[in-house]
Design a protein around this nucleic acid. Structure first.
Lengths: 241, 241
DNA sequence: CGTAGTATTGACTATCTTCAATGCCAGTGG
DNA sequence: CCACTGGCATTGAAGATAGTCAATACTACG
């Protein structure tokens, strides 16, 4: 309750060697990998409800969770709040910010928790960084995010399909920018399987979007019309890549 | 149609420097990163429907997609087939196999496609590998998999909740193994938000699971009873981490 | 032209969401 | 100590949404 001591819990510059930590196995348990030459900055404990960082904040650091549980939330442009994941001891938190420049979600302690800050180079660039650390991070992020490749629903079918198409178009146009017409290589059934919808529901959703003039579709050729989601008021609250 | 030439398209040992490739910007477009010292092994083109690798196969290599589109499918233990993602030019395919030892999904060309094989060390271990490559891979995988943090549905609410709890328990028990009782730190509402279900639906699903004797729940304390999903016949078809 | 895979549409049903009310529990202040 | 409050959990009932079944086009290809 004393206001002091709550100041800046995110950047004590004390580096400790993971080899000396009893939790190290949980954090860096890759097969055939030693915890040698991995150092981190242990942080003050987080009380339930406290946030490690907030969506939209510029990236400061990534962390590994030592004890407790974090709940990751994101606010969509339309103001809807949704949970994008949970993190348990050994998981990495906030690495997306390293790549994106900003944190795409808010990390809030769901339990009394403890984290260690990872000494990453400021931006994915400098080359001197420890190779071992990078390899481990890569392994972990792949696993962790692979596990995360699950949720995502909660929207009505039409919106889910629209969302997918928007993302697919953005993704696909990265090169052939300019053209507004996009070729969908997959069948309606595959699309449905991916989105967790029946093939017929996908067809009906597409018909609905066409009816609403939000896109033109003819067979596998598509072009999006409206940017729809208005660039609403708040800024730091919802930042999306 | 001549059967020859279809032999082993996955491992020609011709390495080329990405700096000489016109598609390089699409593949390695990180900010402030040059394509210097990145080399890959271009592969024979893939016809629509051809598979790059299959779920359950031991890891051979990861690839970067240069042209076309791949559809990633997985077969669940109960025989259900679902699409877990699509990959477009510039995306990495199969990196999960590097970490897991086996490919967790089948990669099938949804269009006529072309890929390059990435020269990764056999296992996430050896240290001599190029740091630049690792950093880029890390960035890409994080982005790519973050984008993937969406789908996942298609199951009825009860199964989705059961699936989550099973996964959460496995994940949480990594350390405190032995105890079969697990503490859920999140509220029903958060759980619902994550799974794309209403809070009430989560409650009813939990009640249903309790009724079916599949788990014991009292408030936030939980213990799982049945391993349920039988260790069914096929092996190479569905392999899950 | 016939076939197979894909796309589309309609009708009916199952499943979830929503709305509303209640119970439970911890923290707070009189 | 105890009523009061707010957050969380639970349950019921009604309405909305998406899945299933079935029938019919459409299209590429041999």
């Amino acid at each position: 309750m004393t206001p002091r001591k709550l100041s800046r819990r995110t950047s004590r510059h004390v580096e400790v060697d993971c080899a000396e930590c009893l939790s190290a196995r949980r954090c860096w348990d890759g097969p055939e990998l030693s915890v040698a030459d991995i150092t981190v900055r242990p942080q003050e404990p987080f009380a339930k409800g406290a946030s490690l960082f907030r969506q939209g904040e510029p990236f400061n650091a990534a962390y590994v969770l030592v004890r407790g549980c974090f709940c990751l939330r994101e606010t969509l442009p339309d103001g809807v709040d949704r949970v994008v994941g949970f993190r348990l001891p050994g998981d990495v938190i906030g690495l997306e910010g390293w790549t994106l420049g900003r944190y795409p979600y808010t990390a809030e302690a769901a339990d009394s928790s403890k984290v260690c800050q990872l000494p990453l180079p400021r931006t994915p660039q400098s080359t001197g960084a420890s190779n071992a650390l990078l390899q481990r991070l890569l392994s972990k992020s792949v696993l962790q995010l692979d596990r995360a490749t699950r949720p995502w629903t909660g929207l009505p079918a039409v919106e889910r399909v629209a969302e997918f198409l928007r993302d697919f178009a953005r993704h696909a146009q990265a090169d052939s920018s300019g053209r507004d017409s996009i070729h969908l290589p997959m069948t309606r059934a595959q699309l449905g399987s991916y989105l967790g919808l029946a093939e017929e529901t996908v067809v009906r959703a597409l018909a609905e979007l066409r009816r609403r003039r939000r896109l033109d579709i003819e067979g596998r050729a598509m072009s999006i019309r409206a940017a729809s989601t208005a660039p609403s008021p708040h800024e730091p609250l919802y930042w999306t890549p």
